[in-house]
Design a protein around this nucleic acid. Structure first.
Lengths: 228, 228
DNA sequence: AGATGTGAATGAGTTCACAGCT
DNA sequence: AGCTGTGAACTCATTCACATCT
């Protein structure tokens, strides 16, 4: 087996040989903390302790501290954390201080939806291009860009200066499209197709398998309802 | 899932002891194994050892065996696993033997896309209903059902006999809509809204936060590309 | 022999508990 | 006093190694 990267088959696998090894669990929590802090800021809260943050959002205080301490001393002992400052630090840490341009490959149901999805077009993220194989779709405009043809993928990536590719093509096309994206110089890929990609060095990579989430739910629905 | 790792999807009550204490990591792997096995079956492979399965799909042989052994002795020592039999066992185990009817709440970009998404309308899953607050959307037909009004949520759930709710409403509406779904008798919820729901006993529950995946990617894009 | 199933060892991730700073 | 930051304890998850079965 090649380099020892940890994998969670079918669910989230996370790419790139990591130099600074932060677990994706920690990263996800940091993202979540950031969201909480923004909410607090809008409520004009200026300082917060790990304990209160934990109470408000059902988190663990010691875990908040551990997570943050990994990256420096952001808090003030005896006081807590400065909300604005911590937002600043976390945004910086997560790479959210600049805009990330994204291209969607495969403008089917899911691709089209994501192109206009608020979560993909707010804050540090923006969908700036999209391509599809189907000539009938090419040329259509939606949510701020005009759909190009998948044959021009590399050109579209360069033109739009996208650094993240959102892969929404069917399973059969996923690996080849991924390789094209990488060849075009993409730096990160969010893969919605239900297959495992052969990942490339130095390209960040995240699988999101929507079906698998349903199957997880199904497992719990199978269990007999405890009639209490 | 946003932060916590200790999520307890569904009210954890003692039903079958071994069934209720399966980690979601294991469950996701089982789903993935099942997919691999189906692919093998379509290639007419009849028997496979954990080692070969692992090699083919970049998994860990001992983990495959551990995962499966949790639920019984499905293999034949000295031989391997019977593909068809194991598919049967896994489908059964994951509750994929019967159809799961689903209702989408919030027919915006994402909701509409999921309604017609293949992964949500194949195998054991089918979207059978959808509702929205916007009267302009109510009455429209797509992908096999007619959009109802969110005010009639409980009625729609009953009429369509949906057991899973797909929550695609904005953050503000998420908690109240969740509560309505639960009151309407829904048994599982897949939550795409970016907030943490206060979960209810005995309702299976899974958060899928698409934005957080982007933020995870952004972190790796921020890092200096390792030259090693 | 050859592969499973499983206790034991290792490793990852989380919580505890407290030293040390404000 | 109060709260952070952190080593140590603990829990959960994966890998190893081998006894066990075909």
């Amino acid at each position: 087996m090649a380099g020892g990267h940890k994998e969670t088959p079918g669910g989230e696998r996370e790419g790139s040989p990591r130099v600074s090894s932060v677990s994706h669990l920690t990263l996800n929590r940091l993202s979540f903390y950031l969201r909480c802090l923004r909410s607090l800021q809008s409520e004009e809260v200026q300082r917060i302790s790990s304990k209160e943050l934990a109470n408000r959002y059902h988190l663990s205080a010691s875990q908040i501290r551990k997570d943050l301490a990994q990256f420096g001393e952001f808090g003030i002992r005896g006081v807590g954390y400065d909300v604005a400052q911590l937002i600043e630090h976390l945004s910086d840490l997560l790479g959210l201080e600049r805009l990330h341009r994204m291209i969607i490959v495969g403008m089917g149901n899911l691709g089209s939806a994501l192109a206009c999805y608020f979560g993909f077009n707010s804050g540090a993220f923006r969908v700036v291009a999209g391509v599809d194989r189907d000539p009938a779709k090419v040329g259509a405009s939606l949510c701020g860009f005009t759909i190009g043809h998948t044959d021009d993928l590399a050109k579209e990536v360069r033109r739009s200066r996208a650094e993240i590719g959102i892969l929404c093509v069917p399973a059969e096309a996923a690996q080849s499209t991924y390789d094209e994206l990488v060849a075009a110089g993409i730096r990160g890929v969010l893969n919605f197709s239900p297959i495992r990609l052969r990942p490339v060095e130095n390209v960040a990579h995240k699988d999101v398998d929507l079906r698998i989430h349903l199957e997880e739910l199904a497992f719990f629905l199978k269990e007999p309802l405890p009639a209490d």
